[in-house]
């Protein structure tokens, strides 16, 4: 018992140290640059003009917006790593991969709903799943992904004592065991997310 408590305390301390490092805000210019890159890409897509004057206008406007809203997008990005490598990793590698996976899961979930509607073979229940993510953004993307994966809908997210739990409404409850349910519900999405968000 005593040993268990000590071990647990150690764990919590380690996590607090880790979190306080990872949850440190990035330096302001990094935050601005990341926000600015995302917004500028968005601007180019919606405006559809490539002449220099338009690009300069867009850059200026998005820079202003990025300075104002620098905390909004970049709160939970990992502290470790270099800015350029992180940005390249995020925009070129992780997001496409994530989108690709989600597309197929969405397809699967759609077909599953069709099946459920036709045969009404539902067995709904609400299960509790532990998540290894700790940041708000990570949890949010995870929750939204879970909502889009077959047969599950996130009902609530709670963070207690540094541990995050998801309450998931499962249309066809297969198991009540937390670990197995977590494996079934979260799949590999969580692993992908852990690479960006802490």
């Amino acid at each position: 018992m005593h040993f268990y408590l000590r071990q647990r305390l150690e764990e919590v301390r380690k996590r607090v140290l880790y979190e306080s490092y990872e949850a440190q805000k990035l330096p302001a210019w990094e935050r601005i640059v990341i926000t600015w890159m995302a917004l500028f890409a968005f601007w180019i897509v919606i405006s559809g003009k490539f002449s220099p004057s338009h690009m300069i206008t867009g850059a200026l406007v998005t820079l202003i917006v990025a300075v104002v809203t620098r905390d909004f997008l970049t709160d939970d990005i990992r502290q470790t790593g270099h800015l350029i490598s992180k940005a390249a990793y995020i925009f070129l590698f992780l997001i496409p991969q994530y989108l690709f996976i989600m597309a197929f899961r969405l397809l699967e979930s759609n077909l599953k709903v069709v099946k459920n509607v036709l045969f009404m073979d539902i067995n709904p229940g609400i299960v509790k799943v532990k998540s290894n993510l700790h940041s708000n953004t990570g949890l949010t993307v995870l929750a939204n992904s879970i909502t889009l994966t077959p047969g599950t809908l996130t009902l609530d997210v709670t963070k207690k004592l540094g541990e995050a739990y998801l309450y998931v409404h499962w249309i066809d409850v297969e198991t009540l065991d937390g670990e197995k349910a977590g494996m079934k519900i979260k799949g590999e999405i969580e692993e992908w997310l852990k690479k960006i968000f802490w």
Binding site: P124, G125, I126, V127, K128, L155, T158, Y167, H169, V173
Partner: peptide, 11 residues
């Protein structure tokens, strides 16, 4: 909810 198990209500 019409559910077989409701862990949210437990917590």
């Amino acid at each position: 909810p019409k559910a077989v198990v409701d862990m949210y209500a437990w917590d």
